[in-house]
Amino acid sequence: MQRKSFALGDIVEMKKSHPCGTNAWKVIRMGMDIRMKCTGCGHSVLIPRLEFERKLKKIIESSGE
């Protein structure tokens, strides 16, 4: 299975939506864990990279780096 490529500052869509109703997240930190921020309410979540890659649906907007 091919790994999905994403970068810092990308806006991504996850498989499940956030309770606030939006499904778009901005990647704000990368490492062993990925920190992402909800574009709707601003809530920040830290999840392991493997879990993030499994739950990632698609990249909505690339940061252009």
Rank of each mutant, 00 (worst) to 15 (best):
residue 28 I to C: 05
residue 46 L to Q: 10
residue 63 S to R: 08
residue 46 L to T: 13
residue 47 I to E: 13
residue 58 K to D: 14
residue 35 R to N: 05
residue 60 I to D: 06
residue 1 M to T: 13
residue 41 C to Q: 03
residue 64 G to M: 06
residue 4 K to R: 15
residue 13 E to W: 02
residue 27 V to T: 09
residue 16 K to G: 06
residue 41 C to S: 01
residue 53 E to L: 14
residue 16 K to V: 08
residue 56 L to H: 06
residue 35 R to Q: 14
residue 60 I to K: 10
residue 37 K to W: 04
residue 22 T to W: 02
residue 7 A to H: 14
residue 4 K to N: 11
residue 9 G to K: 01
residue 32 M to C: 05
residue 15 K to I: 14
residue 52 F to K: 09
residue 24 A to M: 08
residue 49 R to M: 12
residue 56 L to E: 08
residue 37 K to D: 01
residue 24 A to I: 04
residue 6 F to W: 12
residue 61 E to W: 10
residue 20 C to E: 01
residue 54 R to N: 12
residue 38 C to V: 00
residue 6 F to H: 12
residue 1 M to S: 13
residue 36 M to Q: 14
residue 33 D to S: 11
residue 46 L to E: 07
residue 53 E to R: 06
residue 62 S to L: 07
residue 59 I to F: 05
residue 64 G to I: 04
residue 7 A to S: 14
residue 56 L to C: 08
residue 39 T to C: 15
residue 65 E to K: 15
residue 3 R to V: 12
residue 49 R to W: 07
residue 11 I to D: 02
residue 2 Q to I: 12
residue 37 K to M: 08
residue 1 M to H: 14
residue 49 R to N: 09
residue 5 S to N: 15
residue 34 I to W: 02
residue 34 I to P: 06
residue 53 E to W: 07
residue 45 V to S: 04
residue 29 R to P: 00
residue 22 T to K: 03
residue 9 G to I: 04
residue 46 L to S: 11
residue 15 K to M: 12
residue 54 R to M: 09
residue 10 D to N: 07
residue 57 K to D: 13
residue 18 H to E: 05
residue 7 A to T: 11
residue 17 S to N: 11
residue 1 M to G: 15
residue 47 I to K: 13
residue 62 S to A: 12
residue 17 S to V: 06
residue 54 R to T: 10
residue 16 K to N: 13
residue 37 K to R: 15
residue 28 I to L: 02
residue 18 H to R: 03
residue 17 S to I: 06
residue 50 L to E: 13
residue 56 L to F: 08
residue 62 S to P: 08
residue 3 R to L: 13
residue 62 S to G: 12
residue 5 S to L: 11
residue 55 K to G: 07
residue 23 N to F: 02
residue 31 G to F: 03
residue 23 N to H: 06
residue 51 E to V: 11
residue 12 V to Q: 04
residue 33 D to H: 13
residue 16 K to F: 09
